[in-house]
């Protein structure tokens, strides 16, 4: 059953590790996963080299930037970022909202 999770934004980051970097490819991906976990919004692995961040617009955009930086710092060759707005989130009422009646 679907419940409260209708996030405004999700960002998927896909990393191509560089074989020539200081750290081995596996370590580059792990560094990115760690950064994603610490970035704030909910982070989930989405494949061997992908992570999805989901949450509010500002926090996701913010986190996407930080994770991208972490990837580059770890030596990754490319980071593909795909940001998607959730269709339904607009219909989502305000937290703590009340019905019309007083």
């Amino acid at each position: 059953m679907p419940g409260h999770n209708r996030d405004e934004l999700t960002a998927e980051l896909k990393i191509t590790p560089s074989p020539r970097a200081e750290q081995p490819p596996q370590a580059q991906v792990e560094a990115v996963m760690r950064a994603a976990g610490e970035a704030g919004p909910a982070a989930h692995e989405a494949g061997p080299d992908s992570v999805v961040l989901s949450g509010g617009r500002e926090e996701v955009l913010d986190a996407a930037r930080r994770v991208t930086e972490a990837a580059l710092d770890a030596g990754a060759k490319t980071v593909e970022v795909r940001v998607e707005a959730q269709e339904e989130s607009g219909r989502f009422g305000e937290a703590g909202g009340r019905r019309g009646s007083p």
Partner: peptide
Amino acid sequence: FPLDEDGQGD
């Protein structure tokens, strides 16, 4: 409506 930080909401 979603719940707020104090778990309040319809």
